[in-house]
Design a protein around this nucleic acid. Sequence first.
DNA 1: CTGTTAGCGCTTTCAG
DNA 2: CTGAAAGCGCTAACAG
Lengths: 317, 317
Amino acid sequence: MKDVAAVAGVSLSTVSRVVNGSPPVAPELAARVQQAVEMLGYRHNHTAGTLRRASGLSHSIGLIFDDVGNPFFAAIHRGVEEVARARGVVTFAGSSDSDPERERELTDGVLARRVDGLVLVPTAYDHTHLLRDIQVGIGVVFIDRPPRTIDADCVLSANREGAERGVAHLIAHGHERIAYIGPPPDSLYTAIERLAGYRAALAAAGIEEEFVCHDRFDDVFDSVTAVFSAQNLVTIEVLRALHRRGLRGSVAHVGFDDIELAAAIEPGLTVVAQDAAGLGRAAAELLFSRLDGFSGPGRRVALETPLLCRGSGEIRA
Amino acid sequence: MKDVAAVAGVSLSTVSRVVNGSPPVAPELAARVQQAVEMLGYRHNHTAGTLRRASGLSHSIGLIFDDVGNPFFAAIHRGVEEVARARGVVTFAGSSDSDPERERELTDGVLARRVDGLVLVPTAYDHTHLLRDIQVGIGVVFIDRPPRTIDADCVLSANREGAERGVAHLIAHGHERIAYIGPPPDSLYTAIERLAGYRAALAAAGIEEEFVCHDRFDDVFDSVTAVFSAQNLVTIEVLRALHRRGLRGSVAHVGFDDIELAAAIEPGLTVVAQDAAGLGRAAAELLFSRLDGFSGPGRRVALETPLLCRGSGEIRA
DNA sequence: CTGTTAGCGCTTTCAG
DNA sequence: CTGAAAGCGCTAACAG
């Protein structure tokens, strides 16, 4: 930058002004500076600016997912990016692999790089360590799962309601013996909610018999006429199993989470869909509203999970 | 940091040393510093360090994809992250949306944030503007598509060979009238290569008649007994079309790119698979080898694209 | 092993 | 409207 100033025959302040587009600078000088910039191949050091700038903003945020390679999180990433891009904010993204320690390393890592905010799919139970950062003005929003030990903004899917609607749909098609296949509701928020939705639908219909499977579900198909799979990967496994047994056309099936190809198979797969990109956009909106000065208590937004009927869920008992 | 030093009763250098884990520091002092750090909730400013550090390394790299939300790129991201993580390097990621201007904005954006390197899925034709950065020590590696105007490291899939093998597979099952459905080979490297692979397979078998479709492919099914779809999204469309016409069991089909569910449908979908995470890992290795001092000419690594036979490609003519 | 000091590249008062 | 100068938070010589 010194060199640019020298070549353009102006002071550093002037270079800084044109590089940052601060208005009061003579067009002629601005042009000279631009020219010097091109000629020298000058690359502005935005991070050095962050250090000195009054706002201290780095115009970057950090995203922490279970796995950046998982299409669901990738879609969230995309949603966040859409709104961040409009503000010239770039995104760090990393994978916790559902490991609380790794989550901590990652948050510390991006925070040390002075991100303005954090979008977090939480794995750890406790996040009180973020309180200080929040207080100091870092925007933090939880996504997919709510925080357990602190008050913070968060955006969720309507897990319980969606699962309930999906199972009710099965019941409406005459089913009474309906399996729930999904991860154990040990601690994962979405698993707990979806199982609760299944139970709520059963209860609403006065059905008492549950068929809840977590790991093994091989023989449950002998006992039920319909199945609700509570998640992406589980749905795929169920699909395979149904297939293998020649049951795809006879056992009704509704899955949580939409899937590539769900509409291109026979029968089409009926699913409760999440709007992952919408989750991301909503999270980014909350985050930036904080950076814009909003300072009320944590807000919680829930996105709808519409039922997409494509055939497999409409097989009658 | 000043506060930490004050509370611990040591100098800034000492704090710096313990924060960075530079060995020669008395255990007792280190403990005092740690304590002060916890007590004050001190957050190290890694970017400030970058400014002063001799190496100038920020321990961050930038990834630029067509779309971070696309599962193929997400998988690449994951691969890159795996090797970056091992070195304490975090990743920026952004979407160019196949827009050269947006690609440029993004590269400029991350470069201004002083990334140590760049993994780029190129959309723009020209990248000579990166030459200066490369010369100054920024690691740049192209992925999925080679650079056109500069010499740089790059990692690719064996597009042509994979397509050729897929089409040859169809030929080996008795097909002679084989459609190619894919994006027009205007400029996109992968499209050009895959079409060339199709033609090579035909030529090798002495077949002269081509059925190449780009946008509309509705009636090609009347003329062929097999189809090769050259890409992810195209494969899905073809699957739908085949389905709609009740042709899934009779028209042979091989697709380029693996797909979720490909093994869970009937017949299973035979594909030429790319190892996206492998591409990412390979790119990261090349990148870091540059940061570690390697300075030869651009290297090009090509990853195999194995044929996964699952049924649809084995339907005989 | 620890402290002092200079300065990384930039932005921002404050005078001119 | 432009320049001079101070200093953001940190690391790296260099002395002690």
